[in-house]
Design a protein around this nucleic acid. Structure first.
Lengths: 212, 212
DNA sequence: TAGATTGTTAATCGATTAACAATC
DNA sequence: TAGATTGTTAATCGATTAACAATC
């Protein structure tokens, strides 16, 4: 398959398709159409078809896309077939929740270990070790880690970010609600709960006003 | 202030401005320009100025926007000044992490209680109670809750979603990686870690290929 | 064959960026 | 006054949607 340029908007929709396709009982259907997929996810069918055209090895008119092949195509495109190793900084509640979540394996993500200034929790609990932050650099180097997950309070996020970059990390996934300054070629992905809350809050305000 | 129509794109950027403005030491500066704000957040200054024009009560050329007033304007616009009560369904690790996070108060969000099929954890720990799911309906009705947070596994998300709607909830914040079918006027906001991972994964793939 | 569906090309829509006049 | 900055109007850009030919 030729790898075409793909926009971020399309990229963000792919996991949704994948998740739905995988939820279809194994063996129940052999093919699925863009129309069916669009209806299930409440989307426009043209958009789905156009998105799939970018990643799939092709569907057949009247029949649709072969289910298993389509799943494989999307997974391969997203790189879920080869796992990415990551380190997590900040073993608070959220950090430990992510550390213990086994579902990331589905997305090709493997959190090797967590680091914290006070690694209090017994490491055995979730099988994943929690080290002191001072061991971060050597760990990243020996394991050639490319991805870092930041779950420390906002005021320490930039500092942790700088450390990660110094350790050779190329992609950062941050749960801290602060902007991170990074050099080019380093990608920061903000998991920003505040933006979601803004959208929800605005919707509820409108609802309440409507009622009045 | 006249409340104009605001797009979702603008809405999603507002929390970022707010967070940065609040991080400025109290009393250190009285005004801030769109230029300064843009530089700090790595954005275009025109975009910042245009966004602020929609929510602020006005800045002055050469001087900028009065800091305190701007913060108030954004908070008021986002509705952070009057708190929203919410219930959380699914007291697993993630659920408990959210339940125990005190930072939501800043966004006007107040999680009243959590519900689970097996409310194992001792309620006293985080001060927030964890009830059995059977008590959800009466609780929502008596407290007039409008927002529900879903942190159950994907396979139970739709079921929980339906229950919440039956209880009168108008906005749903879901952490489950599945599409939810809802009637119109109900807003679903997906906190989809899978989309973030897709973006990160794609970046790393490109990085690795570049190296070869 | 007829009709559903794919995939592509063109049109529309919305959001971002650029240009510029107004102002302190 | 000069220059930085605001706020608005116009131009560009990108993404979504519509139209349609190809195909099974």
């Amino acid at each position: 398959m030729e790898r075409k340029e793909i926009s971020k908007s399309v990229l963000k929709r792919l996991p949704g398709y994948l998740s739905y396709l995988k939820s279809i009982p194994h063996g129940s259907v052999s093919h699925i159409s863009a129309t069916a997929l669009a209806n299930a996810l409440g989307m426009g069918e043209v958009q789905v078809r156009k998105d799939l055209a970018l990643v799939s090895s092709g569907g057949r008119p009247k029949i649709g896309y072969p289910l298993e092949t389509l799943i494989d195509d999307i997974e391969q495109f997203l790189g879920y077939d080869n796992t990415t190793d990551a380190v997590l900084i900040g073993a608070g509640k959220l950090g430990q929740a992510l550390l213990g979540y086994s579902g990331f394996a589905t997305y090709g993500l493997n959190i090797l270990a967590a680091f914290d200034i006070a690694p209090s929790s017994e490491p055995g609990e979730d099988k994943k070790p929690i080290y002191h932050i001072s061991e971060l650099a050597s760990f990243c180097r020996t394991h050639k880690v490319l991805m870092g997950i930041i779950t420390v309070p906002g005021e320490h996020a930039q500092e942790v970010c700088d450390q990660l970059i110094a350790c050779g990390i190329k992609a950062i996934w941050t749960f801290a609600p602060t902007h991170l300054d990074v050099p080019p070629h380093i990608l920061v992905q903000y998991e920003n709960m505040a933006t979601s809350l803004a959208v929800l809050s605005m919707h509820l305000q409108a609802q309440i006003k409507e009622k009045k």
